[in-house]
């Protein structure tokens, strides 16, 4: 057990003992060398918590699930993607300031961030991009012809079986009535044929544009190894480039429900 882990466990036990939180959402040992989400509710269980380089999943997804909300006030082990998600979810009024205690685990101990101001301040000191590899891949694809990109996505999406793991794992996909399930009209074909998969992923990327925290938890969740995060990260880059807005940043309104009369484009005739 590392120093970071022992600090985390001690912090969790104390928080639960004093009753300041009802549950600590963190990572525990999983099968096949992986980590899994754990929901620690008693001080004695704090030993289940681990923290290392295998902790990737964006735990913010659990904060809005009814079964988790019912447990009471949560603390969450907050890797950078979780912190960004907290800010974005608060911006979208899904979380109130102070609802969630963020636990940032570092070599210098556990930092408790009790409100959004503290989270934003901490984020300001972190590197901007969560996924340099995604940027490189997007640049590689952008340099191709449209036909080459069509072939790439056709090949990748041919393995998509519409399991919706990407949606389920994403903290921003919290809509209780998702467009996918709308059947009057059936916007998105349910079937996993080429159209049902392309339209689903395009729709999801558009609904994430300006909101995606670029954690790539969607791609990690995909059982077929499809890099679905590239579509949403691309949309995010497009929003940033064209409107200067960014998810998880300090306060600008959602890019697609606001506008500037001076927005510039070069393709409208």
């Amino acid at each position: 057990m590392s120093v970071r882990e022992s600090d985390l466990r001690a912090t969790a036990a104390r928080l639960l003992e004093t009753g300041s939180v009802a549950v600590v959402i963190g990572y525990g040992a999983g099968t096949l060398g992986r980590r899994r989400p754990v929901f620690v509710r008693a001080p004695a269980q704090a030993g289940e918590l681990v923290f290392d380089d295998e902790c990737h999943q964006n735990l913010a997804t659990y904060l809005l699930k009814p079964e988790i909300r019912r447990l009471g006030r949560p603390a969450v082990v907050a890797i950078p993607s979780v912190l960004r998600s907290l800010v974005q979810l608060a911006t979208e009024r899904q979380l109130k300031d102070g609802d969630v205690l963020a636990l940032v685990v570092g070599d210098d101990g556990v930092r408790e961030l009790a409100d959004l101001a503290a989270v934003r301040q901490h984020l300001a000191g972190l590197p901007g991009s969560l996924h340099p590899a995604a940027k490189t891949e997007i640049a590689r694809l952008s340099a191709m012809t449209a036909a080459e990109r069509r072939a790439f996505w056709s090949d990748e999406l041919s393995r998509c079986i519409k399991c919706y793991a990407c949606r389920a794992a994403c903290p921003m996909c919290y809509c209780e009535r998702c467009t996918t399930e709308c059947n009057r009209p059936q916007w998105i074909p349910v079937a996993s044929h080429g159209l049902g998969t392309l339209e689903y992923h395009l729709m999801r990327a558009m609904h994430l544009a300006g909101r995606c925290v670029e954690c790539a938890t969607c791609s990690r969740a995909c059982p077929a190894g499809i890099p679905v995060h590239l579509l949403a990260v691309f949309a995010e880059e497009s929003v940033r480039r064209q409107f200067g807005a960014e998810a998880g940043a300090a306060g600008p309104a959602y890019a697609l429900s606001s506008f500037r009369p001076e927005d510039q484009e070069g393709f409208i005739r």
């Binding site: 899994r36 079986i161 399991c163 793991a165 389920a168 794992a169 969740a221």
Partner: peptide
Amino acid sequence: SLRCLGCGT
């Protein structure tokens, strides 16, 4: 099932 995400995988 607290950690189950409710997908179809």
